[in-house]
Amino acid sequence: MSKISTAILRGVSGAFIANSGVGKIGMPAEYSAGIQQMAASGIPAMAKLPSDKFGTLLGYAETGIGAALLAPFVPNKLAGAALTAFSGGLMTMYFANPENTEADGIRPSQEGTSLAKDVFMLAIGLALMAQGGNSK
Rank of each mutant, 00 (worst) to 15 (best):
G89M: 02
N100Q: 08
K48V: 08
S32N: 08
I43K: 00
G55Y: 00
I8T: 12
I124A: 06
R10L: 04
L128F: 10
Q131S: 10
G132P: 08
L58S: 04
P50F: 09
K136C: 15
V74I: 09
T101M: 03
A47W: 07
D118V: 01
G34P: 07
I35R: 01
T84H: 15
G89L: 01
G55H: 02
K48A: 13
Y94E: 00
I17V: 09
A79Y: 02
P50N: 03
F54W: 04
N97Y: 03
G23E: 02
M38A: 11
N76R: 12
A103F: 15
N100D: 04
M46H: 13
F86L: 14
A71C: 13
L9C: 09
E102R: 14
Q110H: 13
G34D: 00
I25W: 11
P72K: 06
L9P: 10
S2M: 10
L126E: 02
A7C: 10
E62W: 02
S20I: 13
Q131W: 14
I4N: 14
Q36M: 00
F95D: 02
L126A: 12
I65G: 13
G112A: 01
L83V: 02
K3W: 14
A123T: 04
L57G: 07
L78Y: 11
G66F: 03
L57N: 02
V22F: 15
Y60D: 06
N97H: 09
M27N: 07
L122F: 05
L58P: 08
S51C: 03
P28R: 08
V119Q: 13
L70C: 06
A103I: 08
G132S: 09
A127F: 10
L69G: 02
N97C: 05
R107M: 12
G132N: 06
L78G: 07
G88E: 07
